[in-house]
């Protein structure tokens, strides 16, 4: 019965870890791109656009990620769309990430003093030019630490993709547990692998935060 050595479990989890990393990267990059669009809309001072983004952010920050996954995975299938676990997971994580990250970035943009907006608009810069050449370069410096910090939440969020059957680290852990009946070992290893992925990110974020405070 005991065909599953420690090494077999470990190597299988490690193989599944690749999917966790891939999903995290895709979600983070796509979420960042959508989040940037949201940011432009959110601080645009166009009433209806701001209201729309506020609603979007409220919905994705105010409902569980698991519910968003279910809505996309089971819901869209009813409308005749074929949704694979990979697609549903990427889509849900992208939307969820964008909602959080655009709020983080909005905080950074709003910490830039009003004078910068006024000076650039007195130079007849358009909204996009103001953002591109004046505001974002300054906001970026403040944004790095919280953005890195949020990437930890994205990595942890990918664990929920296991629920809709996407085989990443958590799902692989569940499957290995079902085959080996060694839950303590399997879930310890799964937790340690997430830790190995997330701890350097949170450590780095904290370091960046400290450096930024020292520079002030």
């Amino acid at each position: 019965m005991s065909d599953f050595t420690f090494w077999v479990i470990f190597s299988n989890l490690l193989l599944a870890l690749r999917w966790t990393i891939a999903l995290s990267l895709v979600a983070f990059v796509c979420g960042g791109a959508v989040g940037l669009l949201m940011l432009f809309a959110r601080v645009s001072k166009i009433g209806w656009l701001e209201a729309l983004t506020r609603g979007y952010i409220e919905f994705f920050q105010g409902t569980p990620l698991l519910m968003q996954l279910f809505l996309l995975f089971f819901g869209l299938a009813l409308f005749g769309l074929e949704v694979s676990p990979w697609l549903a997971a990427t889509l849900a994580l992208t939307l969820w990430t964008s909602a959080f990250i655009s709020e983080i970035w909005r905080g950074c943009v709003e910490s830039i003093s009003r004078g910068q907006w006024e000076a650039s608009s007195s130079l007849a810069m358009t909204y996009i030019e103001q953002m591109r050449y004046v505001i974002l370069p300054q906001a970026l410096r403040i944004a790095v630490a919280p953005t890195v910090g949020f990437s930890v939440q994205v990595v942890k969020g990918t664990a929920l993709a296991s629920v809709i059957g996407f085989v990443e680290l958590t799902k692989a852990g569940t499957m290995l547990n079902n085959a080996t009946f060694r839950p303590f070992l399997v879930y310890s290893l799964v937790a340690l692998m997430y830790f190995a992925l997330c701890f350097p990110l949170s450590f780095f974020a904290k370091k960046l935060e400290g450096r930024l405070n020292a520079a002030r």
Binding site: A159, A191, Y194
Partner: peptide
């Protein structure tokens, strides 16, 4: 803080 809630 560095592991997902579902794994915990």
């Amino acid at each position: 803080r560095n592991t997902p809630f579902i794994v915990q």
